[in-house]
Amino acid sequence: MAIVYPETRQLPDKPDAKAPDGSDVRVLLNLPRGGMAHFELAAGRTSAAVTHKTVEEIWYFLGGRGQMWRKQGDQESVTDVLPGLCLTIPLGTHFQFRSLGDEPLAALGVTMPPWPPEGDAIPVTGIWEPSAE
């Protein structure tokens, strides 16, 4: 088994990528079985709804306020989100989120496995109209 050396990284000033849902992604660090990223959705924006083929996530909200819709099978819910709230997005969950208020909605996300490769997110029908890019 390969040795994984400890790493350290400061939150980048600029996003590394645009997620398929439309949020800005700043990739932090990865290990073979998981990773951490910073997700940010601009004030007043609504993400596209997606589900993942291989990734489960845990999100911890850092700033802003908004709502997260999650649907798994025939169960669905809308959760009000604000700093200090933590939630899960299990594999196969359809989800969509929106930023309400004057500041971006920001969250740390733990992704298992590490943040997904191109094509992992599948568009689904959400409950809100996504913001145009």
Rank of each mutant, 00 (worst) to 15 (best):
P130S: 00
A132M: 08
V27I: 14
G34D: 08
E129G: 02
L87Y: 04
D24W: 09
A19Y: 00
L105A: 05
W59I: 11
E40T: 07
L87E: 03
G119R: 02
L85I: 07
M1A: 13
T46C: 04
V110S: 01
W69P: 12
P113H: 11
T88C: 08
M1F: 10
M1E: 11
M1I: 13
E76V: 04
M36N: 01
R26H: 06
T54C: 05
E133S: 04
P116N: 15
E103W: 10
A106R: 15
P15R: 04
L41G: 00
V78R: 05
L87W: 03
R45A: 08
P130A: 00
S23I: 06
I3L: 14
A2K: 07
V50M: 14
P130K: 02
D74W: 05
H38R: 09
I127W: 07
T79G: 08
W115F: 11
A107M: 00
G84W: 14
H52M: 15
G35A: 03
C86Q: 14
G63C: 08
T88L: 10
P104A: 12
Y60A: 02
L62A: 12
T54Q: 11
P83L: 04
A19S: 05
G35I: 09
A37R: 04
E57M: 13
Q96P: 02
F97K: 01
G63A: 14
Q72F: 09
L28Y: 03
A48C: 08
P20Y: 07
Q67K: 13
A48F: 12
D24N: 08
P117E: 15
D102A: 10
R70S: 09
K71Q: 13
A37G: 08
A106M: 12
A43C: 05
Y60F: 11
L41C: 01
I58N: 00
D120T: 10
Q10N: 02
T93D: 08
C86D: 12
G119Y: 01
T88P: 03
V27W: 10
L11V: 14
D80T: 13
P113N: 09
L108I: 12
P15V: 02
